[in-house]
Design a protein around this nucleic acid. Structure first.
Lengths: 229, 229
DNA sequence: ACGCTGAACAATATATTGAACGTTCAGCAA
DNA sequence: TTGCTGAACGTTCAATATATTGTTCAGCGT
C-alpha cells in the first residue's frame, strides 16, 4: 500500500518542516493538514496522534544513529575506542542537532515526558551494539571476562545518562561535556581492562522495602542541579 | 550575640515545621512570623530572603551527612567499601527523607533551581572525603596509583549524578536504585583496582567550538526520561 | 540608638474567561 | 465500500484581571 505510505511520508515531512521552524506545541494539526491539502481529521488515518508524529520524527532522526553504531561496532580498532566513539558520537550528534535546530529540544522533552517506552527501546537497541563490542573486546583479550555483558552495558548507560540530552541536563559547553564524558569512560574502561579485579561483593545495608513503588518509569527533573568550576 | 542566634533558630524551626507540613510555596513569611510572634518584616533581620531559609534548612539537613561522611572515611574497612558506603548512605538518606516527608522534594527542587552554587558547594565538600578515601586506598595498595584523585572524584560524582535526588530523576524503587548504583560502582571500583590499566588517551574528534556557551551552571530537566521494565 | 512594626510596593501567584487545539465521528462523495 | 471532510466535543492554552506574597522602609516605642 504505497499510496498510504506516501501520504504518511508527506505528512511527516510537512510536520518536520513546521516543527523545526515553529516548535512542537506551536504547530497545529490543522496547519500540517493545510500543508498537505487535506483536513486535520484525515491525518488521523495515518497517525494515531500528534505525539505519534513526534515519535516518527525521532525514529527517523535516530535511524542514522543506529547505522553509525553498527559501523562503529564493526570498526577494526580497539574495543575501548569503539565504546568511546559510540558515546562520543551520540553526545556530539544530539548536542549539535539541538544547537542547530533549537526546536528539537522541545520534541525531545515531549517524548521523554510522554513516550518513556520509546526512550527505553532506544536504550535497548543501543545496548545490543555495546554488548557486541564488549564481547569482541573480551575475545581479543582487551577486556577482562565479564559474566553479564548485558548488565554491564546497562551500567554504562546509567553512568553516562546525563550526557544523553546534553542541553536538557546541563548548560555545560560541548568541550566540557566531552572532557567529562571521557573522564567517566576512562574509569569504566579501566574497570573492564584485563588486570582489573572485580570488587568483592558488597554486603550493603539490608534491602529496604520501599512503600512508594511506582514500577517501570524513570522521571527526570528540570532546571539547575549543580554548577561547575 | 546569642539572642540573635536564638531568634534565627526559632524562625528556622517554625519555618521547617510549616514547610514540612504545607510545602515551601504554601508557607508564607507572614505565617512563619506569626508562629514566632513577630512581624514578617522582622524576619528579614535574620534571613535575607525566603530562599535563604530554605538553604539554611538544607544546610541543617546536610550537616548530618558530612558527619557521617567523616565517620565513614575514617572507618577501618577497605577503601572500596567506604566509597560504596558514602554513596549508598547518601542515596538511602535522601530517598527516605523524601519518602517520609514528601514536601522536602519541593525544597530540593527550589534549591536546585535557584541556588546552584549551594549544590556545588555540597558536591565539593563531598569530594574532600572521596579524595581522602582514595588516597587511603592508594597507600594501602588497594587502589592503583591515581594521578589526580580530585578529578577522579568528580568523575564518580558525574557517573552517579542520577542517584543524587532519586525521586527527582526517577520513579525507580529504592531496591532497584541500590542495585543499579552498586552496579555502576562495581565498574568504577574495578577501574581503580591495582591491576587495572588506564586506557590509552583517546584521540577523539577535534574539539568542536561551541557557540552556545553558557559557562558555569548545570541545568536539569523534569519528568520522564526513560523506562525500565 | 535600637528593635521592631505595619503600611506600602513590586513581583508573583491564582482565578477567570474566551479562544484555540487535538481528537472524534456522522455523513458526504467517489 | 472506501476515503475524506468539516462540524462538534472536551481539553488545553493565553490573556486578563485580581489577590497574595516577598520584600522594603519610614516611623514608633523603648
Amino acid at each position: 500500500m504505497t499510496q498510504m505510505d506516501d501520504t504518511r511520508k508527506q505528512i511527516l515531512h510537512a510536520a518536520v518542516e513546521r516543527i523545526l521552524h515553529y516548535g512542537y506545541s506551536k504547530t497545529t494539526m490543522a496547519e500540517i493538514a493545510k500543508d498537505c491539502n487535506m483536513s486535520a481529521g484525515n491525518i488521523y488515518r495515518f497517525f494515531a496522534s500528534k505525539l505519534d508524529i513526534a515519535e516518527a520524527m525521532a525514529r527517523k532522526f535516530n535511524e542514522e544513529a543506529y547505522e553509525t553504531f553498527a559501523r562503529i561496532a564493526d570498526k577494526k580498532v580497539s574495543a575501548a575506542d569503539r565504546m568511546r566513539e559510540i558515546f562520543h558520537y551520540e553526545l556530539t550528534r544530539t548536542y549539535s542537532a539541538i544547537a542547530d535546530e533549537a526546536k528539537i529540544l522541545e520534541v525531545a522533552e515531549v517524548l521523554a515526558d510522554e513516550r518513556p517506552l520509546y526512550m527505553n527501546e532506544k536504550l535497548a537497541k543501543e545496548r545490543t551494539y555495546l554488548v557486541q563490542i564488549m564481547r569482541d573486546g573480551m575475545e581479543a583479550g582487551e577486556f577482562r571476562q565479564i559474566a553479564n555483558p548485558e548488565e554491564v552495558a546497562e551500567m554504562w548507560q546509567s553512568a553516562l545518562m546525563k550526557f544523553r540530552f546534553p542541553q536538557l541536563f546541563s548548560k555545560l559547553t560541548l568541550p566540557k561535556l566531552q572532557r567529562e564524558i571521557d573522564g567517566v569512560m576512562d574509569l569504566l574502561l579501566a574497570g573492564m581492562s584485563p588486570g582489573a579485579t572485580q570488587p568483592a561483593v558488597w554486603e550493603g545495608l539490608p534491602e529496604a522495602v520501599d512503600p512508594h513503588c511506582v514500577p517501570g518509569v524513570e522521571v527526570v527533573m528540570k532546571k539547575h542541579l549543580n554548577a561547575d568550576d
